[in-house]
Design a protein around this nucleic acid. Sequence first.
RNA 1: GGGAGCUUAGCUCAGUUGGUUCAGAGCAUCUGCCUUACAAGCAGAGGGUCACUAGUUCGAAUCUAGUAGUUCCCACCA
Length: 878
Amino acid sequence: MEIATKYEPKNIEDKWYQFWIEHQLFASRPNQQKPFTVVIPPPNVTGVLHMGHMLNNTIQDVLVRRARMRGYNAVWVPGTDHASIATEAKVVNMLKEKGIDKRSLSREEFLKYAWEWKEKYGGIILKQLRKLGASCDWDRTRFTMDPEMSEAVTKVFVDLYNKGKIYRGVRMVNWDPKALTAVSDEEVIYHEVQSKLYYVRYLIEGTKDEYVTIATTRPETIVGDTAICMHPEDERYKHLRGKRAIVPLVNRSIPLIFDEYVDRDFGTGALKITPAHDINDYNLGIKYKLDTINIFNDNGTLNEAAQFLVGVDRFEARKQIIPLLEAAGNLVKIEDYTNKVGYSERTNEVIEPKLSLQWFCDMASLAKPALDVVMKDEIKFYPDKFKNTYAHWMENVKDWCISRQLWWGHRIPAYHLPNREFVVAVSKEEALKIAVEKYPELNLTIDDLKQDEDVMDTWFSSWLWPMSVFDGIRNPHNPEVDYYYPAAVLVTAPDIIFFWVARMIMAGLEWRQAVPFKDVYFTGTVRDKLGRKMSKQLGNSPDPIMLMEKFGADGVRMGMLLSSPAGNDLLFDESLCEQGRNFNNKIWNAFRLIKGWEVDEKLPQPQSNATAVKWFTMRLNEVLTEMNDHFEKYRLSDALMAVYKLVWDDFCSCFLEVVKPPYQKPIDGKTYGEIIDIFDKLLRITHPFMPFITEELWHSLKDRKDDESIMVAVMPEPQCGADDQQYLNRFANTQKVIERVRRVRAEKNIAQKNPVNLYVLRKKVAEDDEMDCIIEKLCNIPKVEYITEKMPGAILFIEQNVEYFVPFAENIDKDAELKKLNDELAYVENFLQSVLKKLSNERFVQNAPEQVVAVERKKQADAEAKIQLLKEQIAGLK
RNA sequence: GGGAGCUUAGCUCAGUUGGUUCAGAGCAUCUGCCUUACAAGCAGAGGGUCACUAGUUCGAAUCUAGUAGUUCCCACCA
């Protein structure tokens, strides 16, 4: 049967994914095995696959597949997040395109559209993940707004409320004037922007021409000013104590106050105070009992209270108020200025600090235990530098604004009563019971209860994810959650360490009194090769699906893993996938080679094959040990590199070249069987990284039963013998000799097909045969000979202080050989000098450990011997 | 403003407790090969004052301090 010379991933990938699904190989149920649980960081339900997902999910799949093969009952739970702001924004846009204004719809009508949209476009990303080979247990797919998940969220809200950890109050919050909702502190991103600093003077009340000048970046809020503040020790303003100023344009009288908050060196040292629109001003407002004048509508336009520019957007108002101030004689000057402005993470709209009535979750008490488990390494972070970040946030955590003025999300289970009180309960019926008991005099009926209009922050459901996917909130002692919880590892990006990771830990401890996962692997950010973040605007993000079509899913997986040590950013370049594809092809062709051999069972096994098998088996064990170590430390790219080198260098370039029978000759049966076993193991080791090609070849390698799969084959574990290291060293030395001979060939232009001779200047020992046959095979040497005297006129090299001679028919270029020898001599002499310097240092000999000194003495002896040999050879040449 | 990290070959990165020829790997580069598994390949080669300075030490890529550059996180400076 002809096998193509190039690996074609396309058909193979779909075929095997289908096979895995049909045979339920991703499915998991609680059993007697040890569990290995991974819950996917749920992507936005309306999202599409990007490179960050590719990296993140490749890593998860590698870990899950490896665990499965190592005898764990591995489960990888997939799902999506309802992403309230992002999704609502998308639906609003979709409606707008259809000519429908959200405000013209009722809540129910809007939600109907939203659900339709979700059913139609939602979960595309999960389908895309299948292309990657993700071994998720798809039957367990969850959505954060599934009825059971919603029930869990409600239950948790009520529980926290009853524990006094949720409260409602008027606070200064981050208001998104585009999405028309409050957002949490974590959802505000600060960017540096070029803006202007406006100097505006306020007339001192009771004077004709005495002014105080302030500096502000937001002149449009002047009409909301209720004070001017200066530093109490500022000499410039001491005389103004107890006076009042007149707000320009609106001619309102406001007090001058003095507080140390003000920085004397900034601007003029005088600060206008607008308590309704700045958090600091708000705090000062409370301290000095100032009025609060809200001049903005929710959408960021000026309202009636502003008196001027009513209905104009805040940024437009900023422009338009300047000529007004100028005309009134209040504008002093304008300077360029760089400052930081907060933007909404989701809508990219400039955040407006706004006083509003919101729901908050008290964080301090939840944070304390969550901090401890990480500090005590009950949960380990990889890399551990994120412990610092985590600790800092936890120690300074502020209350969490959990209400959002949106419709798409989990509605807050608070029910308002006609008497302006409210009750919190899991259902309206429950709420009525409580209300009736509390306020019997009201004679309440169910229609008197009005549920709160707000929904909860998306993360208020995500933080339950490791529990709620196993129904661990509603039924805390069901067998599933008891078995699968906690997860073995969470793989996620560091930018959601506060949004999600920290809060999951809090939630796990609060409702299960146990950590939600044991390890957290923080992936890096995928950047382009210039180091820029991948973004739609830059158009520098490749389409993962196209990439997989071009290089194969296995190739792309390898590309993602190659240079992504935990926590380090990954500078992605297509060439990495190319390298992955090439590796696939290498394995593919190794398989072609082996499958092409004719086998003769009667043929005895040559020594070279016996040596090769013995060596490779040891080498394999060595690499397995190394890989286990890498995996323990989540150094996936190192683990992959170890496999890569084992397969390419050791297996293909060395092992196969040794056992390869001469052209059109058969291979002996014993060796062939051993090769098949070795190849089988290599495929299994490689499978977690590259699932498709390994499954394909694994099936072609031997006759397999219909339902067999490499996915559930046993992962080889290292089994090292006592003398392995010695044997490996001997083989490594042999490889060095081979390299030297090849170098001679390359330098002298002797083609591999022309045999050369090799003479070794030392006494032969019995063990030499084991290795010499390898040299003979790989260097095309008829027979390695041992001699007792130097061989003049031959090319010499020294390895391990043994002289080797390769006779060369043509005249040797004496000068060139001399130069080579002299160069080497100079190098060794230099080296000897450094060793002698050390050894002649009394303090070194006295202080350094004996072993270290002994090593130096050995170096000295070796170097001296080598110098002796080189000098002899140089003399001989002359 | 505070904190954390990083700086090793052209690029991306390893380098565990200071000590074995410790200065490494992959990619890229150069040279020679279309050698019957693979040119998506084979064989070989070159390439680094370990950011800089000072210190500790018999000995520093590794420890300490400072400097420079860089990245990230946090923070209410108008």
